[in-house]
Simulated assay, not measured.
Amino acid sequence: MLTKKNTTLNAEHPVLPNDLFVSCPLALEEVEAHLFVMALGCLTNYSQRLTFQLTFGDVLPDMNADDQLVRLDKAQKRLVQPLKYEGLRLGKRFSHRIPLFTEMSIDQDTGLVTGVFNDYLRQFLSDLAAGYAPTQLESLLMRR
C-alpha cells in the first residue's frame, strides 16, 4: 500500500497536500515510476479525459513481449492501489484513500498499456508534470 502518515487536514473533505507524491514514501520500482511518468507525459492542459496510451516498447524497450507483460502486470497491480494518507482532524484520526487511476489495462495482443487518471487529481497531476523534468520525477518516485 502506498502510504503517507501524519498529515493534518481540517477540511470537511480532505484536500490533497501539495507535496503528496514528493513527500509520500511511494518507493515505486523502476518500471512503475517509468510507466507513471510516461503516462503523465501523455496528458495536456486541454485533455478532457485524463487518458493515456503507451506501447509496451515505450515503457520497456529491448525486452521480449512475454517479459514486458510480466513486468507491466506487476507495475499495474501496484499503481492501481490507492494512495493512503492519514492524519488528525479536530483531534480525531482519519485516513483517506484516493486512486491515481480510475482504470489501467495492459493488452499483450495489441502491445498497449492504456488507462485513465483519476479526474479528481487533474490539477495536482498538471502541477506535478509542470514542476519536474521526467527523469527528476522518476527519481523522486523511486527514492526510498
Rank of each mutant, 00 (worst) to 15 (best):
R78T: 11
A33W: 01
E32F: 00
L83T: 01
L9G: 07
A39D: 03
Q108T: 07
H13R: 13
Q136R: 11
R97I: 03
V37R: 01
V70W: 13
N64P: 06
D73A: 10
K4G: 08
V113H: 00
E12A: 10
E32W: 00
L125R: 00
H96D: 08
T51M: 04
C24F: 12
Y46T: 15
V116W: 06
N18H: 14
T110Q: 13
G111V: 04
L2M: 10
K4Q: 14
D67V: 15
A75R: 01
L35V: 05
C24L: 14
V59I: 07
Y85L: 08
L79M: 06
Y46E: 13
R143F: 04
V37K: 02
A130N: 12
G41I: 04
N6V: 12
L50V: 02
R49T: 04
T110W: 06
V59H: 01
V31Y: 05
Y85T: 09
A11G: 11
Q76D: 13
S139I: 14
L9K: 07
N64E: 09
L112A: 03
R143H: 09
T44A: 06
R122D: 01
T110G: 05
R71E: 15
N18P: 10
L20C: 06
V80G: 04
T102M: 03
Y46R: 15
K77P: 07
L140E: 07
L16F: 08
E32K: 00
Q108L: 08
D119N: 14
K4M: 13
Q136F: 10
D119F: 08
S126P: 07
L9S: 12
L125S: 04
H13D: 11
T7G: 09
F52R: 00
L100H: 00
H13A: 12
L79W: 00
Q53Y: 11
T102E: 02
G91H: 05
F56Q: 03
Q123R: 10
